[in-house]
Design a protein around this nucleic acid. Structure first.
Lengths: 108, 108
DNA sequence: ACTCTTTGGTTTGCAATGCAAACCTGGATG
DNA sequence: CATCCAGGTTTGCATTGCAAACCAAAGAGT
C-alpha cells in the first residue's frame, strides 16, 4: 500500500459513485431496507435506484430479495463482503483526508 | 439542505472523482505543487494527470501556471473558490459517514 | 551544427458509465 | 372489465476516464 494519494487509484468505483455511496452507507446502519425507503432517503428515481442496485448486486456488495406476497416488495441488504468493502472504502477516504490535513509542506 | 443521503445527489463530481480528490486534497495542504510532483504522489500517467488538471481548471477549482524559463514547468494551485469547494466536499462526505454511523432507522 | 534521447506535457479514440425517460406488470378500484 | 397506479426494469444517449499515440523543446554526444 502506497501513500493515501496513490491509494485512491485502487478505490472501488462501484462504491464510490455518490448515489451508491449513499445507498451503501445507509445500509451500513440497518440490517436491510426496502426499495421505496431507499428511494426516499436518496431522492433517486426508480429507474436509477434500480440500476444502481443491480450494479451493486452484480458486484457482490448487496443482496436483493424480491418477495411477491401480495404486492411485490424488494428488500436490499449488504452482503458480509459488501459490508467489509464499504467499511474499507471509508477508511481509505478518511486516510486521504487525514493525510491532506496533517501534511503541511515544510516551511510555510 | 436535506438528509446527508439526499445531499449526495448534489455532490460535485468534478472533485469527487478519485484521482481528482487525491489531487485537490494534496493541494489543500500546500500552496502549490508542480506537475511532476503531483504525478509522483498520485501515480497517474502524464496524460491522465494533464486531463484531470484541465478539467479542474475549466471548473475553476485550480489555477495552472506555465513558466517557460529554461525547461517548461507547470505549477498548480487551488483557487480560493476551489479551496472552498474541496473543503465543502469533505464536509459532505463526513456528514454522510457520520449519519450512517449514528443513524438507526426511524420507526416506520 | 545535426540527430538522438529525455523530459514535460497534450490530444485522440474507445469502452464504460450515469441519467432521464419510456416501458412493463400485477393487484386494487370504480 | 377497464383502467389506474405502485413498483420496478430496460433503453438510448450524452458524458466520462483511461491508455496510448502524439508533440515540442532542451541537452548530450559526435
Amino acid at each position: 500500500m502506497g501513500t493515501p494519494f496513490e491509494d485512491m487509484a485502487e478505490i472501488d468505483r462501484l462504491v464510490h459513485e455518490p448515489s451508491r455511496l449513499a445507498i451503501t452507507s445507509a445500509l451500513l446502519s440497518c440490517e436491510s431496507a426496502d426499495f421505496l425507503f431507499l428511494q426516499r432517503i436518496t431522492g433517486l428515481s426508480k429507474g436509477n435506484l434500480s440500476s444502481h442496485l443491480s450494479k451493486l448486486e452484480r458486484g457482490g456488495i448487496v443482496e436483493i430479495l424480491k418477495t411477491s406476497e401480495g404486492r411485490p416488495r424488494t428488500t436490499v441488504s449488504l452482503t458480509p463482503a459488501g459490508r467489509g468493502t464499504v467499511a474499507e472504502h471509508w477508511d481509505r477516504l478518511t486516510r486521504l483526508r487525514d493525510a491532506a490535513r496533517e501534511w503541511t509542506a515544510p516551511g510555510e
